[in-house]
Write a protein that binds this DNA or RNA. Structure first.
Lengths: 329, 329
DNA sequence: TTGTAGGCGTTATCAT
DNA sequence: ATGATAACGCCTACAA
């Protein structure tokens, strides 16, 4: 394996000089810089990131912490996009990444998790799928021993940023579109998890819409479960004109219920997953680009590494309709 | 951060002794062993795996190399199960893992990829979704600079194992079951990728079945694409009695086509993904436990690390039917 | 501007 | 059986 030592020898300079070139230090003359760069090229040198991580507690290794819901189909798709988006950007930025799942830390204390992360020389974490109940993770964020970026969880401190679309506005928009298309005014809203961060925002969006348009609004928590959405629809679907759901998966549950009841109601979802294509109907939904969201998170983490303070980063979304033809490959 | 040095001090022994205890070396007296173990407990010491990886070229860091197909829904589910299964087992075995995707190495040479992996101190690779066309990966396997475990790719050498179900037998079994249930004899088989490893095995299974049962068998390559399966079915579905597909996704495509044509044919799939639930029909399929498969692969990689030679590891499968009620949560 | 040397936390070799 | 000590590959004061 070719090391920094070989490069130094080849370029006729000291190891530290090579290191300085590699890490873009100032105070390196153009001549030595190019000498070193040539040596790097000729020897096909790739710095060993493990050694770098060990040696400097500076920027470095980041953990992708994913709250994987192994039972819900739609979630897989979202998580895969998160992960691949984050990894691509990390490679671009030269950051070292390991992927971890919430379930690995079940029954562990914040201290234990912290120690584990430190034992991996982790200095930054990106968190996907945080809910209010994940106390251990919250504690870790609060301790600020790591730079953190939370996706969809409104937490900011000196070392913590969060990135998210504007869930309130998005929910407002997609519901408005559906209402406008159908001109009814009794709305059934199937919200997400009672303790999920985005749930409150989206409910707020619905309330604003109901107020602005003088609509009647009934809200139930579907917990992002297809089954619960189905049951809620079976019970309250008939009395409503439109069913707005806080996730595509729940929208599917609602639609299946409506089919069963043999009545029609416009249904709209949230997330814009491909799964929507398999139900064989069109419906409005909010399309989030999860891959891009994750890339933004990685970029923000890099900013934190570079000394910036935590902040909120707003991601874009679009309204869309997904149907079978869009999916099939 | 508490290091091995602190443990040594606390236990009143030398650093090297602590290391020996940690790595289960022989030639350590019971007394010192317990002394050290107590110190580890009391100080909540977790060894730094980055430092370990740097210091020893022995066992160590493994790369999960996943061939992610970002467009096909069903694939996400399978990949997530692979990844989570592998990561869980790795944690159990104390192995360090990073996750990588094929697309990250697009247009890179084998040398470049090798250097990258070495720069990460990778010593073992588990490969998911290899096809005959991935020449660079094949070269890397051939070079044997890393211990490799390939899932579903029949490659074995001194440093390479592969784990897989018996695709020939599985395809035979699930097709036989479907044939027996329906008593028809003209079979349309929609195979997978022309260059996929499992495709040939499965076709062989179909041929054996056709021979054993005196069935007529038409074979087309659907490339694991829902759309192609749909088109093949539109063209040849009517003339056939039963449609056997090499993946669930293609089975869905076939069923959609049949619906469109307004005719009925028994359809069977392969993989046992939850996606099957969303089409609202029952069909036979082969259920592979991808998570377990990945865990087996990780275990086998660990065996390779421990000096064993590459070999074939056969994984179990079951026949099953999946339908809507099984999925909804 | 460049080089020297100590250190990051382990493992591994070799005395003792 | 135990303990110094030199790597591993890189970073970073500090010295020159």
């Amino acid at each position: 394996m070719v090391s920094i030592k070989d490069v130094a020898k080849h370029a006729g300079v000291a190891i530290s000089t090579v290191s300085k070139v590699l890490n873009n230090y100032p105070n390196v003359s153009e001549t030595t810089r190019t000498k070193v760069e040539n040596a790097v090229k000729e020897l096909n040198f790739v710095p060993n990131s493990v050694a770098a991580a060990l040696s400097s507690k500076r920027a470095g290794r980041v953990a992708l912490l994913v709250n994987l819901n192994v039972d819900a189909q739609a979630i897989d798709e979202i998580d895969m996009r998160y992960i691949s988006g984050a990894l691509s950007k990390a490679m671009e930025l030269g950051l070292d990444v390991i992927t971890l799942f919430f379930f690995m830390f079940k029954d562990k204390t914040a201290d234990e998790v912290t120690r584990y992360l430190q034992s991996q020389s982790i200095t930054g974490i990106i968190i996907f799928g945080l809910s209010k109940e994940d106390l251990v993770i919250h504690e870790i964020i609060r301790d600020q021993k790591f730079k953190c970026v939370v996706i969809d969880g409104p937490i900011v401190n000196e070392n913590t940023s969060y990135v998210s679309i504007n869930h309130m506005q998005a929910q407002y928009d997609v519901a408005l579109k559906t209402v406008d298309e159908n001109e009814f005014d009794k709305i059934l809203y199937i919200a997400g998890k009672r303790n999920g961060y985005v749930t409150d925002d989206r409910i707020e969006g619905m309330k604003r819409l109901a107020h602005d348009r003088g609509l009647s609004l009934k809200i139930f928590y579907g917990e992002f479960s297809e089954l619960q959405a189905r049951n809620i629809t079976l019970e309250h679907g008939e009395k409503s004109h439109i069913i707005i759901c806080a996730s595509d998966l729940m929208a599917i549950g609602a639609m299946k219920a409506l089919e069963e009841m043999d009545i029609f109601r416009p249904v709209c979802g949230f997330d814009g997953t491909m799964l929507m294509g398999y139900v064989g109907q069109k419906m409005n939904t909010v399309r989030q680009d999860f891959s891009h969201l994750a890339a933004m998170a990685m970029e923000e983490l890099n900013n934190l590494f570079n000394g910036e303070s935590g902040k909120y980063v707003e991601a874009p979304y679009t309204l869309t309709q997904i149907n079978y033809e869009d999916i099939i490959v």
